[in-house]
Amino acid sequence: MNVTATLIFQLIVFFILAWVTMKFIWPPLIAAIDERRQKIAEGLAAAEKGEKSLAEAKSSAQEIIKEAREQANKIVEQANRRSNELIEEARGAAVAEGQRLVAEARQNVELEATRAREQLRKEVAAIAVAGASRLLGREVDAKAHADLLEKLALEIERG
Protein backbone atom coordinates (compact mmCIF):
# COMPACT_ATOMS: atom_id res chain seq x y z
CA MET A 1 0.00 0.00 0.00
CA ASN A 2 2.60 2.51 -1.03
CA VAL A 3 2.49 5.32 -3.49
CA THR A 4 5.44 4.85 -5.78
CA ALA A 5 6.82 5.84 -9.16
CA THR A 6 4.47 3.19 -10.59
CA LEU A 7 1.87 5.93 -10.49
CA ILE A 8 3.77 8.09 -12.95
CA PHE A 9 4.41 5.19 -15.30
CA GLN A 10 0.77 4.18 -15.12
CA LEU A 11 -0.14 7.76 -16.02
CA ILE A 12 2.19 7.69 -19.01
CA VAL A 13 0.89 4.30 -20.13
CA PHE A 14 -2.62 5.69 -19.90
CA PHE A 15 -1.83 8.65 -22.13
CA ILE A 16 -0.08 6.41 -24.64
CA LEU A 17 -3.06 4.08 -24.81
CA ALA A 18 -5.48 6.98 -25.19
CA TRP A 19 -3.30 8.53 -27.88
CA VAL A 20 -3.10 5.25 -29.84
CA THR A 21 -6.85 4.87 -29.54
CA MET A 22 -7.37 8.39 -30.82
CA LYS A 23 -4.94 7.87 -33.68
CA PHE A 24 -5.60 4.35 -34.91
CA ILE A 25 -8.82 2.96 -33.48
CA TRP A 26 -11.39 5.70 -33.19
CA PRO A 27 -11.31 7.43 -36.60
CA PRO A 28 -11.63 4.37 -38.87
CA LEU A 29 -14.37 2.86 -36.75
CA ILE A 30 -16.36 6.07 -36.57
CA ALA A 31 -15.85 6.62 -40.29
CA ALA A 32 -17.10 3.11 -41.05
CA ILE A 33 -20.07 3.56 -38.73
CA ASP A 34 -21.01 6.92 -40.20
CA GLU A 35 -20.59 5.71 -43.75
CA ARG A 36 -22.75 2.68 -43.08
CA ARG A 37 -25.34 4.87 -41.42
CA GLN A 38 -25.34 7.05 -44.52
CA LYS A 39 -25.73 3.97 -46.72
CA ILE A 40 -28.59 2.66 -44.64
CA ALA A 41 -30.30 6.03 -44.76
CA GLU A 42 -29.89 6.11 -48.54
CA GLY A 43 -31.13 2.54 -48.82
CA LEU A 44 -34.20 3.31 -46.75
CA ALA A 45 -34.91 6.42 -48.79
CA ALA A 46 -34.52 4.44 -52.01
CA ALA A 47 -36.81 1.72 -50.71
CA GLU A 48 -39.41 4.30 -49.81
CA LYS A 49 -39.11 5.91 -53.20
CA GLY A 50 -39.42 2.51 -54.86
CA GLU A 51 -42.52 1.75 -52.86
CA LYS A 52 -44.05 5.06 -53.77
CA SER A 53 -43.32 4.63 -57.47
CA LEU A 54 -44.67 1.10 -57.29
CA ALA A 55 -47.91 2.40 -55.86
CA GLU A 56 -48.02 5.06 -58.52
CA ALA A 57 -47.38 2.50 -61.24
CA LYS A 58 -50.12 0.30 -59.82
CA SER A 59 -52.65 3.08 -59.82
CA SER A 60 -51.70 4.19 -63.32
CA ALA A 61 -51.89 0.59 -64.50
CA GLN A 62 -55.36 0.38 -63.00
CA GLU A 63 -56.34 3.50 -64.87
CA ILE A 64 -54.92 2.20 -68.12
CA ILE A 65 -56.76 -1.09 -67.70
CA LYS A 66 -59.98 0.76 -66.97
CA GLU A 67 -59.53 2.92 -70.04
CA ALA A 68 -58.72 -0.08 -72.20
CA ARG A 69 -61.79 -1.88 -70.95
CA GLU A 70 -63.97 1.09 -71.74
CA GLN A 71 -62.49 1.38 -75.19
CA ALA A 72 -62.95 -2.33 -75.83
CA ASN A 73 -66.57 -2.06 -74.76
CA LYS A 74 -67.05 0.86 -77.09
CA ILE A 75 -65.44 -1.00 -79.97
CA VAL A 76 -67.57 -4.10 -79.39
CA GLU A 77 -70.69 -1.98 -79.26
CA GLN A 78 -69.72 -0.23 -82.44
CA ALA A 79 -69.01 -3.54 -84.16
CA ASN A 80 -72.36 -4.87 -83.06
CA ARG A 81 -74.12 -1.83 -84.40
CA ARG A 82 -72.21 -2.01 -87.65
CA SER A 83 -72.98 -5.71 -88.10
CA ASN A 84 -76.66 -5.08 -87.47
CA GLU A 85 -76.57 -2.32 -90.03
CA LEU A 86 -74.85 -4.59 -92.54
CA ILE A 87 -77.38 -7.31 -91.94
CA GLU A 88 -80.25 -4.83 -92.41
CA GLU A 89 -78.66 -3.50 -95.55
CA ALA A 90 -78.13 -6.98 -96.96
CA ARG A 91 -81.68 -7.94 -96.13
CA GLY A 92 -82.99 -4.80 -97.86
CA ALA A 93 -80.90 -5.48 -100.92
CA ALA A 94 -82.02 -9.12 -101.04
CA VAL A 95 -85.68 -8.15 -100.77
CA ALA A 96 -85.32 -5.56 -103.51
CA GLU A 97 -83.53 -8.04 -105.73
CA GLY A 98 -86.20 -10.63 -105.12
CA GLN A 99 -88.95 -8.17 -105.94
CA ARG A 100 -87.15 -7.11 -109.05
CA LEU A 101 -86.74 -10.75 -110.13
CA VAL A 102 -90.39 -11.47 -109.47
CA ALA A 103 -91.45 -8.38 -111.44
CA GLU A 104 -89.21 -9.35 -114.30
CA ALA A 105 -90.58 -12.87 -114.34
CA ARG A 106 -94.09 -11.57 -114.26
CA GLN A 107 -93.35 -9.24 -117.09
CA ASN A 108 -91.84 -12.08 -119.09
CA VAL A 109 -94.86 -14.26 -118.46
CA GLU A 110 -97.17 -11.46 -119.54
CA LEU A 111 -95.12 -10.84 -122.62
CA GLU A 112 -95.19 -14.54 -123.48
CA ALA A 113 -98.92 -14.70 -122.89
CA THR A 114 -99.51 -11.69 -125.07
CA ARG A 115 -97.37 -13.16 -127.75
CA ALA A 116 -99.20 -16.48 -127.53
CA ARG A 117 -102.55 -14.73 -127.70
CA GLU A 118 -101.45 -12.80 -130.74
CA GLN A 119 -100.34 -16.00 -132.35
CA LEU A 120 -103.57 -17.66 -131.44
CA ARG A 121 -105.56 -14.82 -132.88
CA LYS A 122 -103.64 -14.96 -136.09
CA GLU A 123 -104.16 -18.67 -136.27
CA VAL A 124 -107.84 -18.29 -135.45
CA ALA A 125 -108.15 -15.69 -138.17
CA ALA A 126 -106.41 -17.96 -140.60
CA ILE A 127 -108.61 -20.85 -139.58
CA ALA A 128 -111.68 -18.66 -139.86
CA VAL A 129 -110.67 -17.47 -143.28
CA ALA A 130 -109.95 -21.00 -144.35
CA GLY A 131 -113.25 -22.17 -142.94
CA ALA A 132 -115.18 -19.35 -144.52
CA SER A 133 -113.60 -19.90 -147.93
CA ARG A 134 -114.44 -23.54 -147.77
CA LEU A 135 -118.01 -22.67 -146.81
CA LEU A 136 -118.39 -20.13 -149.53
CA GLY A 137 -116.50 -22.13 -151.97
CA ARG A 138 -114.40 -19.39 -152.93
CA GLU A 139 -111.36 -17.50 -152.00
CA VAL A 140 -111.90 -14.97 -149.31
CA ASP A 141 -109.77 -11.96 -149.49
CA ALA A 142 -108.31 -11.70 -146.06
CA LYS A 143 -107.46 -8.09 -146.60
CA ALA A 144 -110.91 -7.13 -147.75
CA HIS A 145 -112.57 -8.72 -144.79
CA ALA A 146 -109.99 -7.83 -142.23
CA ASP A 147 -112.55 -5.98 -140.10
CA LEU A 148 -114.81 -8.91 -140.06
CA LEU A 149 -112.04 -11.29 -139.23
CA GLU A 150 -110.83 -9.10 -136.50
CA LYS A 151 -114.29 -8.99 -134.94
CA LEU A 152 -114.51 -12.72 -135.22
CA ALA A 153 -111.17 -13.24 -133.63
CA LEU A 154 -112.19 -11.03 -130.71
CA GLU A 155 -115.43 -12.94 -130.33
CA ILE A 156 -113.57 -16.22 -130.30
CA GLU A 157 -111.20 -14.81 -127.82
CA ARG A 158 -114.00 -13.79 -125.60
CA GLY A 159 -115.95 -16.82 -126.27
Binding site: V3, T4, T6, L7, Q10
Partner: peptide
Amino acid sequence: LNGTFGLSIA
Protein backbone atom coordinates in the same frame (compact mmCIF):
# COMPACT_ATOMS: atom_id res chain seq x y z
CA LEU B 1 -3.20 2.60 -5.42
CA ASN B 2 -0.65 3.55 -8.05
CA GLY B 3 -2.73 1.90 -10.74
CA THR B 4 -5.90 3.80 -9.96
CA PHE B 5 -4.31 7.09 -8.91
CA GLY B 6 -2.19 7.07 -12.01
CA LEU B 7 -5.44 7.21 -13.94
CA SER B 8 -7.25 9.70 -11.73
CA ILE B 9 -4.28 12.08 -11.68
CA ALA B 10 -4.05 11.78 -15.45
